[in-house]
């Protein structure tokens, strides 16, 4: 606990605030799912949650245990097959926000969830793999990435590009023909990084209360750039915290 809330709580609250009412959001399990459900329970009751299990417009009143939790199917507007959720719903650009986690994310917002180490065939650590992330990162109109801030996670260059952010920099997404705008926010337990409009490099724009600039620099695996108008994330409101804690207790 720092102050009246934990670092995970401010991260989740900051991520929930990044979602607007009425948007469609393709949600991964874990931190993104908690944040999306917090948004729906607070300021965004009409947020459309889409899970890769094919549940569209799910309205769970507790946190789902997996992306295929029965409560998602029971409360969804539509339950479609897995080929359909990717081909008809994600691929044509019907999703406003793609919400992803990562084992590694680099200064251009590229994501690795495949292997740690240089040799794909002989990895140091074998991670779960891609899941739905490559196409979510490619085709959602905007991306939001959520990770806990550490040098192991925020790295200069990912060992393996599972999902493309801005590639090697400006123009790469257009060259590759990726329809979405790419990651617009990297939300961590210390702050918020956003792509520089000219260089696409993830730059610190918000510092969470209780975090220091030195702490963020120390936990970032590249020489971190800081926006000239660096802001402090407003602390969680009592209502946000109460709703989040109530949701967490449903797990």
């Amino acid at each position: 606990m720092v102050g009246d809330f934990t670092a995970d709580e401010i991260m989740t609250v900051a991520a929930a605030r990044a979602l607007r009412d009425g948007q469609t959001c393709f949600v991964g399990i874990g931190l993104p799912s908690t944040a999306a459900n917090l948004a729906r329970a607070t300021h965004a009751p009409n947020l459309v949650l889409i899970y890769e299990s094919g549940t569209i417009g799910a309205k769970p009143d507790r946190l789902p245990l997996s992306i295929g939790d029965g409560i998602l199917a029971r409360t969804a507007d539509a339950v479609v097959s897995v080929p359909e959720v990717f081909n008809y719903w994600l691929q044509p650009g019907r999703v406003d926000v793609g919400f992803l986690g990562a084992a590694q994310v680099d200064r251009y917002g590229n994501i690795n969830t495949t292997v740690v180490g240089d040799d794909y065939r002989r990895p140091k650590v074998r991670l779960p793999g891609a899941g739905g992330a490559p196409e979510i990162a490619a085709s959602a109109r905007r991306g939001i990435i959520m990770v806990r801030h550490s040098r192991r996670t925020l790295v200069e260059r990912v060992d393996f590009v599972t999902s493309v952010g801005f590639g090697r920099g400006p123009g790469d997404r257009q060259r590759l023909g990726l329809s979405g705008a790419g990651p617009q926010m990297l939300i961590t337990d210390l702050g918020i990084l956003e792509p520089d409009p000219d260089t696409c490099e993830l730059t610190l724009t918000h510092l969470h209360p209780n975090a220091t600039l030195d702490q963020v620099r120390e936990a970032t695996g590249w020489p971190l750039k800081v926006a000239p108008n660096l802001a402090e994330t407003p602390p969680p409101t009592a209502a946000e915290l109460a709703t989040l804690r109530k949701l967490e207790r449903t797990r």
Binding site: F86, P134, T162
Partner: peptide, 30 residues
Amino acid sequence: HSHAGMANRYVAGAAGLPFAVLRGYVGTDL
């Protein structure tokens, strides 16, 4: 593969086609 890729590979198999087409994998190491 990615999920979208695997799902489409099954669709092609079910449809009796040799392959499926999608927007995916571009720029990835996969």
